[in-house]
Design a protein around this nucleic acid. Structure first.
Lengths: 106, 106
DNA sequence: AAGATAGTTCGACGGTCGTCGTATAATCTC
DNA sequence: GAGATTATACGACGACCGTCGAACTATCTT
């Protein structure tokens, strides 16, 4: 059973935004972006059931945000930075950037 | 009955991404961005019922993406460009940018 | 006041989503 | 092969979403 990753040119904007609109998935993507190394599924600081975590990772993968590959009993996830940058320049940076301090000035 | 618009610093990333993840709403935002003028609700090229259109515009407004104000019998919508740029720099540009031609190269 | 125009509200519907627990698969180590 | 570890698959459940039509509100014009 192979994992289906969309090709770079198949990644759809609406699907990416949809995938990122969930707090848990946004947290996963932030962690992946911070630690620039492949991360095993179980290493994310999420207070949810295993099966739910699997679900979120699949949504991220099918949207084209992450790549998953088997490594022994683990499955390692990495952010598809290059593909996303090529397809939607600046999007990932904008999403991952911290909220500017001045944004609360009225 | 007053419309509730979130303040600039109350706009939440997940809500913005959520709002943009629907094709109809993305189309509305694109139209608003293209025509840099306030647009009446009925002027969008959407093949949906009036009530559905109202629903989408409310989602966009409550997420902080658009501003709506009454003007006679019309209600005009405008994109909250400045607020969005201050809060999430580069996000709107990245979302509205057309897909680069080279993104389909393998 | 009557009619026209532009949006909203409401309830309803089918579909999808996030979540869970349990059972199952795949791989490593002994 | 047996056991341990890691992750997936499968229902199931309640909640939410996008959609609609019909009734309603608000404003302008005559």
């Amino acid at each position: 059973m192979e994992l289906d990753h969309p090709d770079r040119d198949e990644i759809e904007l609406a699907a990416v935004l949809r995938a990122l609109s969930d707090p848990q998935r946004l947290a996963i993507v932030r962690e992946l972006a911070a630690a620039d190394e492949p991360r095993p599924c179980g290493s994310f600081a999420l207070d949810i059931a295993k099966s739910t975590r699997t679900h979120h990772l699949r949504v991220l993968r099918e949207a084209g945000l992450i790549e998953q590959r088997r490594d022994g009993t683990c499955k390692l996830s990495t952010l598809r930075r290059e593909d996303l940058e090529a397809r939607f320049p600046g999007l990932l940076d904008a999403v991952l950037r911290r909220v500017p301090a001045g944004s609360s000035i009225r």
